[in-house]
Simulated assay, not measured.
Amino acid sequence: MMSALPPFRLAIPKKGRLYDKCSSVLSGAGLEYRREARLDVAVCKDLPITLVFLPASDIANYVGEGDVDMGITGQDVVAEAGVQVVEEMELGFGKCRLCLQAPVKKGWKGKEDVVGGRICTR
C-alpha cells in the first residue's frame, strides 16, 4: 500500500561522470526507474521517489531553496552556491584535481613563477 505522502524528490546530475556514478549507486540501492529520452524527471517503480535530473552546478541551489528534498552534487558546488544545506553523507566519488599550466617558452618551473600573472579558468 502506497503512502499518501508526496513523493520524495531526489536531484541527481543529468549527465557526465557524476551521473554515471549516481546511477550506479541508485541501482545498487534497488531504485528502479525508467528515464524517457529528453525528460529530466523519472518516477521510481516501487518507491515514492521522484528523480529530478539537473545540471550538477544547479543542485545545491535547488536543495537550498527547498525545490527538491535532497541532491547529489560536489562539495565544491555547494560551497560556490553559498546555500545552507546539510551534508548527509560523503559518497567518495567525483573527486577533482586542480591543474596549473604555463607556456614552456616562458621557462616557468613551478607555481611560484606565476605569482602576479593572469589566470584563466574554465
Rank of each mutant, 00 (worst) to 15 (best):
V41G: 00
C96G: 01
L18V: 12
V77E: 14
L100A: 11
P13F: 07
V78H: 02
V114E: 04
V86K: 15
P7T: 11
L51T: 14
P103V: 06
Q75T: 15
A29Y: 11
A29I: 05
C99N: 10
E87F: 01
V115C: 00
A56G: 01
S23A: 12
I12P: 00
F53T: 00
V114K: 03
E80T: 10
P103H: 09
R118Y: 08
G28V: 12
D76Y: 11
C99F: 11
L31W: 07
V52M: 13
A60N: 02
W108L: 02
Q101F: 15
S3E: 14
A29S: 11
S23E: 13
L39A: 05
D20V: 01
D46H: 06
C96T: 06
K14W: 07
C22H: 06
V43T: 03
D46W: 02
P55V: 05
G30D: 14
V52W: 10
I12A: 02
V85W: 06
G64A: 04
C44Y: 11
S3F: 10
Q84N: 08
F53G: 04
D67N: 04
E80Y: 07
Q75R: 15
R34K: 14
G64P: 02
V63C: 01
C99Q: 06
G110P: 04
C96N: 04
R17C: 14
F8V: 15
D40T: 06
P48L: 07
L26R: 08
G110W: 05
Y19T: 03
L31R: 04
V86A: 15
A81L: 07
P55G: 07
I72T: 00
G82S: 05
E32R: 02
G107L: 08
G82T: 07
K105Y: 15
K106M: 09
D113P: 03
Y62G: 01
P6M: 15
R38N: 05
Y19L: 06
G116Y: 03
P13H: 08
G107I: 07
R97M: 10
V68E: 00
T121N: 06
A4C: 07
M2Q: 12
D69Q: 15
K45I: 00
V83D: 05
T50W: 10
L18P: 12
V115A: 02
A37S: 12
G107D: 10
K111Q: 08
